[in-house]
């Protein structure tokens, strides 16, 4: 079998079994490819199914009308506005809070047991089921702070939900900045603040933005916390202030899929497609920003 084996001590213990090992290798490759194909096929099937059912319902009126009991008059204006307003405030609240917390934990806080405790808690909070945040939001924002079932209460709840994700992602991004950059900055006499602002943050920005995109994408599709805090279902008006009542796209979708009339199930598909488009627009905008940030630093 293995002719070139030299007379090394213990060589007789080595069984090349090249065939078997190569076979295992290719089997693993096949398995990997199959997994990818399976995942993509499922996704393609789902997207195809949604698009196919949604197409006939995608008209301008679908975006400009409020919900109705007649399928041909039902639209998602209230959900679209509600989601847009809520996401705007969610990002406005969670982005600065999350990034600043991460900067503190990563750049300022000394390694001590309080930091470890906080760190572990943040990591755990990222895995808490969203309904728990809904209950927290109901108790703290809706009842205790008496914000009611408002856009702001929804945004604050969502902000809590995504904060751990943002903090963890931002910390990762800050950690990836080589310490030589910090050392060089200190070396020319920069303060800690100048170092962070002029060197660490720009370097980490693409990573921070990616983390925030992922966090916002999670928030936009969440239904459970919104239902818990009491976001409404039939709202034939758009919110006029952050303290106004609202509904959101996922709630609209949930409501339509549970209706007996089959047309509403297709309308739900159209709403799902709209939600996907909103999500992709948001993501591509953030990616665009990220690429600009990267280019600017390179140039």
């Amino acid at each position: 079998m293995a002719a070139e084996t030299p007379a090394l001590p213990g060589a007789e213990l080595f069984h090349p079994r090249v065939r078997l090992r190569k076979g295992l290798g290719s089997a693993f490759l096949v398995l990997g490819v199959a997994s990818v194909v399976f995942g993509l096929a499922m996704l393609a099937f789902l997207v195809f199914d949604v698009v196919e059912r949604a197409i006939p319902w995608l008209r301008v009126e679908f975006l400009t009308q409020f919900d109705s009991r007649f399928s041909d008059r039902a639209g998602i204006k209230a959900g679209l506005y509600g989601t847009a307003y809520m996401m705007f405030f969610t990002i406005l609240i969670s982005f600065p809070l999350g990034v600043m917390s991460a900067i503190y934990l990563e750049e300022y806080a000394r390694d001590s047991w309080p930091k470890t405790v906080i760190q572990i808690n943040i990591a755990n909070l990222a895995g808490v089921p969203s309904i728990v945040y809904g209950l927290l939001g109901l108790t703290v924002f809706v009842r205790w702070m008496a914000l009611g079932r408002s856009v702001l209460a929804g945004a604050l709840t969502m902000a809590l939900l995504v904060l751990p994700i943002i903090i963890v992602a931002t910390q990762e991004a800050l950690r990836a900045v080589p310490s030589s950059i910090r050392d060089a900055s200190y070396g020319v006499g920069a303060t800690r603040w100048q170092t962070i602002w002029h060197h660490v943050l720009p370097q980490a920005l693409p990573g921070i933005l990616t983390g925030n995109i992922l966090a916002a994408s999670r928030a936009i599709g969440e239904t459970a916390p919104l239902i818990t805090i009491g976001a409404l279902t039939f709202v034939p008006f758009t919110p006029q202030s952050p303290l106004d009542r609202f509904t959101a796209l996922p709630i609209q979708i949930f409501n339509w899929t549970s209706k007996p009339q089959a047309e509403f199930h297709d309308l739900a598909a159209a709403a799902i497609l709209t939600l996907l488009v909103v999500l992709l627009t948001m993501n591509s905008l953030a990616i665009l920003l990220r690429n600009r940030a990267v280019r600017r630093r390179a140039g």
Partner: peptide
């Protein structure tokens, strides 16, 4: 830009 998304949506829906 984020405000822009909101604005675009608002314009798109205001019919």
């Amino acid at each position: 830009a984020l405000a822009g998304v909101v604005a675009v949506l608002a314009v798109a829906c205001d019919g």
